[in-house]
Amino acid sequence: MIAETEEWTKSLVAAGKREIVMSERETLMTEREADERLIESCQRGDREAFRILFETHKDKVYSVTLYFFGGDEALAADATQQVFLKLFTRIGQFRHDAEFTTWLHRLAVNVCLDEHRRRRRFIPFGEAFGVDEPRVKKSPEEIVGRGEAEVSIRDAIATLKPKLRVAILLKYFEELSYEEIASAMNCSKGTVASRLNRGHKILARRLGHLRASLFRGE
């Protein structure tokens, strides 16, 4: 056992020094091809293809809008509906030289920010001074059922400036790369990095009291 362990350790040390490089050029295309064929069907007006596309992306889009609007389910459902209606009515404009998901996310971002701007004219002073208030007060049911921590995080997300909020939501729900987020938000990768950095810091400072429960969960 010991001798074997020694050999094993040596081989692993050698292996560990070998750099592992994944070439992006070798990224496989199968899923993208399936998406492209589905989109082509949508572009021909195929209703069932639309439904498949909707089913594929609905939960992520809904989650982004739900957290963007501070947990307001009705507003999130309306925004999600708007996103997909825009998607379906404009899908003829989509060209395959762009990433479909990036295009979808750009629509979602625009719907969220447009709605935010529209509502800004009618909502409290807080936003005018750069502090958004959560739209929905937490109900006892939420606190008990989902946990105080989750509600606190949701509320803290809702108080981020809209562009920080969108960057956080695209990163954690859509699992986009910085480049994809930059494309969806029409900004540079550096700006995305900066927004995420600021977002993370604000969350950590506002919710530092959750650190123990968060890491205990490991």
């Binding site: 939960d59 389910e73 999600t80 921590a149 995080i153 993370h200 400072r205």
Partner: peptide
């Protein structure tokens, strides 16, 4: 601090869209 922010953000749960949404669309 950043890692705490990351952990907080990644603890957000994905929500299921309302079942009636497709019908509305």
């Amino acid at each position: 601090e950043i890692i705490l922010g990351v952990r907080l953000a990644e603890s957000l749960a994905l929500r299921t869209a309302p079942a009636a949404l497709w019908e509305k669309i």
